[in-house]
Amino acid sequence: MIDPAAASRHGSRVSVFITGTDTGVGKTRVTTLLLEALRHDRRDAVGYKPVSSGDREDAALLLASSGLPEDQLDAINPVFYQTAVAPYVAGMLENNPLDPAALIRGYRDLAARHELVLVEGAGGWEVPLAPGYAISDLAVDLALPVILVAANKLGVLNHLVLTVNAIKARGLTCAGIVLNELEDELDTAKITNKGVLEDLTGVPLLAHIIHGQDFLDLEDFPIFG
């Protein structure tokens, strides 16, 4: 692995790693809304999608929210696989195994040129990227505080507790949770999850995004100062 101390000298003081309890929980939505809020506050913030599989739609959204031209897509998303599977599997199928060092270099290049880098992971916390190397290892190598995104639904409390414990076990700080509503309808589980997740995880709820919400308030994210 890359030396975490070396990575921390390249912008990790204010940058963050955004992960999820699973795929499709709203990581890109949260990342783009944070980028838009930060840039509205005149902060020099950019998104970073180290690896994507299947398409580059998420990376393109981060690029647009970062205010960067289209020719910077490879800087925002240095590793792209055509196959919509975990990067580790895609690398095998496409005979192009992922090099973790390339992901670190991409982050450092952006961090050297911008105040904040919002790194969006792929899928959940333990998605495999290469043999013996997962999303969690990338977060450790970048030495960044983690924001955890979860879709509000039955079962999310279990997923939150497991993921927060896993983040802490790697010696990283989970700076907070963003609970995301994927649909309009509410049930008892969705209504009550918000009230108990802090007690169960020991991590603050930073924001609860209702369905269709198109903004985030930076005052809810003290990590950005």
Rank of each mutant, 00 (worst) to 15 (best):
A75E: 05
L186M: 06
A151K: 15
P222G: 05
I135K: 00
A111I: 07
A7K: 08
A5N: 07
A101W: 09
L157C: 13
E120K: 13
Y81N: 08
D22R: 00
W125H: 05
E198A: 15
A45F: 10
Q82A: 11
D109I: 15
L144G: 02
F215Q: 09
H10N: 03
I167W: 01
V127Q: 00
V161T: 15
L200V: 14
D214A: 14
A111T: 11
I18P: 00
E126P: 04
P97S: 08
E126G: 12
G24Q: 04
K153E: 08
P4N: 01
R42T: 14
E57F: 13
L200D: 00
T28A: 03
K153P: 02
P50T: 12
A122D: 02
M1G: 12
I223A: 06
K168R: 14
N180H: 11
K49Y: 06
A143T: 06
E183L: 13
D187E: 06
E57G: 12
L172Q: 01
K194S: 06
I223L: 13
I209C: 11
G47P: 05
M1P: 11
L116W: 04
G202R: 10
W125G: 00
G202L: 10
L73Q: 09
L197V: 15
H40Q: 12
D41K: 15
V14E: 01
R113N: 10
P131I: 09
L68Q: 05
Y81L: 07
I223G: 01
E120N: 10
L68V: 11
V196R: 05
Y107G: 07
H211I: 10
R39S: 08
L110M: 03
L200A: 12
I147P: 03
L197Y: 14
G225S: 10
G202S: 08
T83E: 07
Q82M: 02
L218S: 07
L216M: 14
P204Y: 03
A102M: 06
A101Q: 10
L103R: 04
R43G: 03
K194F: 10
F215Y: 13
L216S: 05
V117H: 02
A122S: 10
V196P: 02
E115Y: 08
Q72T: 14
L148Q: 07
G123V: 01
D41P: 14
Q72M: 15
L129Y: 10
F215P: 01
N95S: 11
S52P: 05
A60Y: 01
I223Y: 00
D44E: 15
V30M: 08
P222Y: 09
P100N: 01
P145W: 02
Q72V: 13
F215M: 09
V16K: 05
A86S: 15
A5E: 08
S52E: 15
V85S: 02
S66T: 14
L179W: 05
A134L: 14
G195D: 09
F80W: 12
G132C: 11
R13G: 01
E181R: 15
T23G: 02
A112I: 12
A6F: 11
P145I: 09
L142P: 00
V85A: 08
L205T: 15
T188I: 15
I191R: 12
